[in-house]
Amino acid sequence: MIRAGQPWLGVGLGYRQDLHDAIFARSGSIDCLEVISEQYLAAAPAQRERLRVLRERFPVVPHGIELSIGTAGPLDLQYLDDLARLVVAMDAPWCSDHLSFTRAGDLAIGQLTPLVRTREHATAVAVKAAQVQRHVGVPFLLENITYYLDFPAELSEAEFITEVVEQADCGLLLDLTNVFVNSVNHHFDPVEFVAAIPLERVVQLHLAGGQWSGDTLVDTHSAPVPEQVWQLLDHVADRLSSLRCVILERDQEFPDEFDELLADLTRARQTFDLVRGG
């Protein structure tokens, strides 16, 4: 799943172009970056150059949003070829995407949409996750998504995730904010949830902040990490034996004061300094 010798990359940021200057101005406070894979698959010169600049200063990991592993039918081999090329070009230690679907028929909805959680579907996704891992040649991590729609099904979300990653023997990108948001919107206990998934497979964490829309908490990546997510982090931190990286996600409402983001990085880093005895 993850090589034992794979080093700890640290606590970093999801790279967004809007943040570029601030990231380089405060690079000493950022250990690593995560880029959206799809923005670099076509390898146009501008993208290649940007990736070179980022990699010169930071360890960088790729994170996909359009693999659509849950779409019925086979994976897109062209996509896998492009991803494998990117992984080699970046010398990436792993790659990741979401346990969801974003395409159906000829529609590309661009929304991480939940699957119906049956054993049959878990097995089908696991087969494909194993295929991604073989094709790309580095560990593949699946991320738990935020979902607003939910369909009553054979398996709970925690059982479904566990089935998929155990069968595929792949890693987990655990988004703690997604766990919290889902626990609020779908009325479950987030502590019970994290107790029910294989935490030893978590290679990377995501943290972010959301906003309310009516009676629903929405994962907008637009606010500081909420206190409940920090508590969840404290709860799991010393049980993440494979963890190599923590990424703070911020996609909009970028604060005037970049320190607001750095404060979240610092808090996460302190948590793991304690756990790792640093």
Binding site: A72, L107, T113, V116
Partner: peptide, 13 residues
């Protein structure tokens, strides 16, 4: 896998 028709119906909805 979530069946193709179900996913297409949800995507269209």
């Amino acid at each position: 896998m979530t069946d193709d028709g179900f996913q297409r119906a949800l995507a269209e909805l």
